[in-house]
Design a protein around this nucleic acid. Structure first.
Lengths: 220, 220
DNA sequence: ATAATAAGTTAGTACGTACTAACTTTAATT
DNA sequence: AATTAAAGTTAGTACGTACTAACTTATTAT
């Protein structure tokens, strides 16, 4: 199955959106890829013709098994490349997403496997995201985010969205990195700021940001 | 200047063909890229519109300064990637061309520079080809090949074509690698085999192969 | 110099992937 | 239930990049 870069990107975002539970809506895909909804409708038909997605008209798309396999391979590539860039080439964790985004389509499986070997076959990337195996197995546990934590609860940060370098730098400056222990000391209602204690430091972050930082157990 | 993968490939082969002296003929480009001549005609017009090549109708194309700059960047990328794969990821020198061919279009300049740094800024790739600097300077000396050597002459192998893995394995098995010393002990006329002494071993190779192995000085 | 061959170009087609504009379906509101 | 808003689709267009077929120009051989 030789797919174009674009087709691969579609599959990847469909996978990610589907992790939310529901089928991937046309507009969500369009937003994620920054293209018009009409273009998505067209591409979904092609992907369906290729047997990579199952489209229910007006309802959204779901990956088929083959489509899912492609998406998982891309995820694996992306995360191994990110790890490699950080560990072996001195990239900052905030600055690898874009580079990986391009390389993941160009790298052969052999290259990915060699990189993984060189890294000791890590199971997580620098942002805490699990790396699918070459066979396509991955931990898909649904994590809670800081936004889900009750006031007074503690948790360990395990993962965060890697999309926005700015965001990652913001988090890092505040000590919010995988492994950090946080305690929610106060919450404002109506999507208001959440006050955290990270280490000894107390600080407030917005609800939107909090929703992008995942923790091992929001109820501990 | 944001070019497609294809446009970049055209510029690269035009550069390589032009190294032979003459402008790059439509058919040569077509052959190198494995596409129809008609497609080349079309693309040359687009590249000309972009100011990357100068086309003389029915005569061939030459790179402009900007076009040349793009080609040299690609060459730099290609060769640094090849070096990195061999040195840092355990690839065989015969097996890196294709991988580099894809990655060179996806890698950022930053990545290339970081790889180059990690390698200690090498000036040659594993096949002996000179690596252009980030500023686009490169040694373009025309080298003679084994096919140019007179009977009885000696020379040092400095470089060989990296296109065909089979060919590279063939050469390696015979000790014909960059740095090897060869002596031409006999030549058959009419493009016949050339008998070489490499180290202590004597062997004959075809004229076509000999033309793809470059040496420092055929007349020594 | 003419004819034959090789090289190159143009015209017309196809496919992938995007777009906008217009329309349809679904969901939400009253 | 009817209306409106939101989401999704279709139709028509454009561009990049390939193709084949037909034609033109350049080169070579006689």
């Amino acid at each position: 199955m030789n797919l174009t870069r674009q087709a691969e990107d579609y599959l990847k975002v469909i996978y990610e959106i589907e992790q939310g539970g529901a089928p991937a809506a046309t507009t969500s895909i369009a937003e994620e890829l920054n293209i018009a909804a009409a273009s998505v409708s067209g591409m979904l038909q092609r992907l369906a013709r290729l047997g990579l997605v199952k489209v229910e008209r007006y309802r959204g798309a779901r990956l088929t098994a083959p489509g899912r396999a492609v998406a998982l391979q891309l995820l694996r590539r992306h995360r191994i490349i990110e790890s490699f860039l950080v560990t072996k080439l001195g990239y900052g964790w905030d600055d690898v997403h874009e580079e990986a985004e391009r390389l993941e389509h160009a790298a052969s499986s052999e290259l990915i496997d060699r990189m993984a070997d060189a890294l000791g076959n890590p199971t997580e990337d620098p942002h805490g995201a699990p790396i699918p195996t070459a066979a396509g197995r991955v931990d898909e546990r649904r994590l809670s985010s800081i936004a889900d934590m009750k006031t007074g609860s503690r948790a360990r940060v395990v993962r965060m969205s890697d999309r926005d370098p700015e965001f990652l730098r913001y988090l890092k400056k505040r000590g919010i990195v995988p492994g950090a222990n946080v305690r929610v000391t106060a919450r404002e209602p109506f999507e208001g700021p959440i006050t955290l204690t990270v280490g000894r430091v107390r600080q407030a972050i917005g609800a939107a940001a909090a929703a992008l930082v995942y923790v091992d157990d929001a109820r501990a």
